[in-house]
Design a protein around this nucleic acid. Structure first.
Lengths: 215, 215
DNA sequence: AATTTTCATTACAATTTCATAACATCCGTC
DNA sequence: GACGGATGTTATGAAATTGTAATGAAAATT
């Protein structure tokens, strides 16, 4: 999960990009012109900027000249070679030409985030942070040690937050598919999670069904 | 300026790429198939690899899976979205589609080299210094002798610090790609590193998964 | 060829995980 | 409020996983 600044003056495109990148877990801040972008870069300190070249007022190229260390993916309608080279020469981390497929944009975003080490595939709620890439969990900055089953269960709950998960479903996903154990096993692990994380009301019991992680 | 490995089985293209990149001041080493590429990566330790996907023998994708920290620019004739995403997901630093203009390739090479500029030929933590260029390790100024496997493992851990690395991933990267050994081998080498470097708590075990180097 | 070094494998010890059981408490229904 | 089933809580021992040291084969060096 990373904080992204989406700079594009075309409202529908900006919306679409934001929506898609939010869906894969990022926080997206839209900006619709160069001046707004510069101000948001200062105040929000995004991890990555997706920057349209053609902007009212200050152009994308000029914005990039003012940047220092923030990674940038350039977006433009121009397919001319000069523009691409200009973008890369200015220090862009990547370049994508309109019209582009959303899948390609998200792939490029992930690639840039990975190599600039700015991606923190983490999930936070209350005073708890779950870092999936390092498999660490913190509560108030303090490290919480989870066993493999506990971590897998927490991961499942987070990925299906606000959904009621049946014990059977949980068994199927966290344990082996054909595992034929007591469903009470699930209960015990849920209690363990509640205890270790100190969250009583986030993991709700759905009577006669299973559990639901509410956020 | 930099040492580049050009991997392409089509002789004229390989020649052309080499020629152009040599003209802008790089040292170019050509490779014409996957096996040759792997061997040259080991012996020459290039700063950047330009990698064609379609190769006789081992594919470009498979080569990339085995790489650790060397930057890669993918070259392919396929314009399909899947291939592009696959390349980026595997950790490619850039992607270029045939046929491409030489000016664009050289621009992308410069861009990748600029942002991967490895000014850190050494890595230090606690009382330990790891010098990657000379492959020396010091603890309190005292020289620590590491075997090749141990050094490769340490390098992998440092390059992926604060990430949970699975035993399979470690085997894949440090050992040969088709090596089919006991995963306990990884454990033994990790213990050896912990012992030699005198770091017990830096290399954490991630139960049921593998290890994580914390810094 | 002899010596040294590297390293995969093995066996066993130490540790961790986790399913189960046993009992306590809660919930909905009557 | 009483009942029965469902869930919360805690403890325990077996099983799985990892730590450790030793061994001998293979590779590298002399």
């Amino acid at each position: 999960m990373a904080k992204l600044l989406i700079v594009d003056d075309e409202l529908p495109i900006n919306r679409l990009v934001c929506k898609n990148l939010t869906l894969v877990g990022h926080e997206c801040i839209p900006a619709y012109d160069g001046v707004q972008a510069l101000s948001l870069i200062k105040s929000e300190q995004p991890d990555l900027i997706i920057l349209d070249v053609m902007l009212p007022g200050i152009s994308g190229f000029e914005i990039m000249k003012l940047l220092n260390s923030v990674p940038v993916i350039f977006v433009t309608a121009k397919t001319g070679l000069d523009d691409r080279i200009k973008g890369l020469a200015l220090g862009a981390d990547d370049y994508i030409v309109k019209p582009f497929e959303m899948a390609e944009l998200t792939a490029r975003v992930q690639a840039v985030l990975r190599r600039t080490k700015r991606d923190v595939s983490a999930f936070s709620f209350d005073d708890i942070t779950v870092d999936f890439s390092s498999r660490n969990v913190y509560k108030n900055g303090e490290h919480i040690v989870l066993t493999p089953k506990e971590f897998a269960l927490l991961e499942l709950l987070i990925n299906n937050r606000n959904l009621a998960l049946s014990r059977e479903k949980i068994l199927e996903k966290v344990w082996e598919y054909d595992y034929c154990g007591d469903t009470r096993t699930v209960d015990v692990h849920v209690q363990q999670l509640r205890h270790k994380l100190g969250i009583k009301d986030r993991i709700k019991t759905v009577f006669k069904v299973g559990y639901r992680f509410e956020i």
